[in-house]
Design a protein around this nucleic acid. Structure first.
Length: 154
DNA sequence: GCCAACGTTGGC
DNA sequence: GCCAACGTTGGC
């Protein structure tokens, strides 16, 4: 089993939106970055767990847990001219962008803020904390996963 | 294949 | 709203 962290802007799609979706499940569309795409297309497996991270908001941080409920498949929003993530270069016969389905598991008891994560020596090298990092999806090691969740009740 | 210009991300 | 960082684009 693999662990992940996935970023979303709460004003666009926050953890409450996922919880409120039918069966707590939605597709994670709109990723237009090759590294992130490759992870969704090739590495994410059904049953993997992911941290839900709120970015670009008043209090950026980890807010909950979700699981991967469908493995990589073409992101059809790339073919919709009305969609903000429309990409005319994505050919339906040879899709450029992929997404997975995620299912809500739970909120954390409190937000584990970016500010707090930055203070932890245990998370040295964690991609989220690297300067200028812009990856919206990144792998989390089991050790990092356990450490981050240990902060929830710390 | 280089690299400057441009657009986006995302913390602050 | 500002701006640093960085990925992408496209001219050459």
């Amino acid at each position: 089993m693999n662990y992940w962290l996935m970023k979303s802007e709460p004003e666009e799609f926050g953890i409450d939106d996922l919880k409120a979706a039918p069966k707590g499940t939605d597709h994670w569309d709109g990723v237009r970055n090759y590294q992130a795409r490759n992870m969704m297309r090739d590495q994410m497996k059904k049953g993997d767990l992911a941290l839900f991270y709120h970015s670009n908001c008043a209090e950026p941080g980890i807010v909950g847990i979700m699981k991967i409920s469908r493995e990589g498949y073409p992101d059809f929003t790339a073919w919709d001219p009305a969609d903000p993530h429309y990409d005319p270069k994505s050919d339906p016969a040879d899709p450029r962008w992929f997404m997975v389905d995620v299912t809500y598991v739970r909120h954390l008891e409190r937000i584990i803020t970016l500010r707090e994560l930055k203070e932890k020596r245990e998370l040295e090298g964690f991609p989220l904390l690297r300067r200028g990092n812009r990856l919206s999806i990144m792998p989390v090691t089991e050790k990092q996963w356990n450490f981050i969740l240990s902060l929830e009740t710390a």
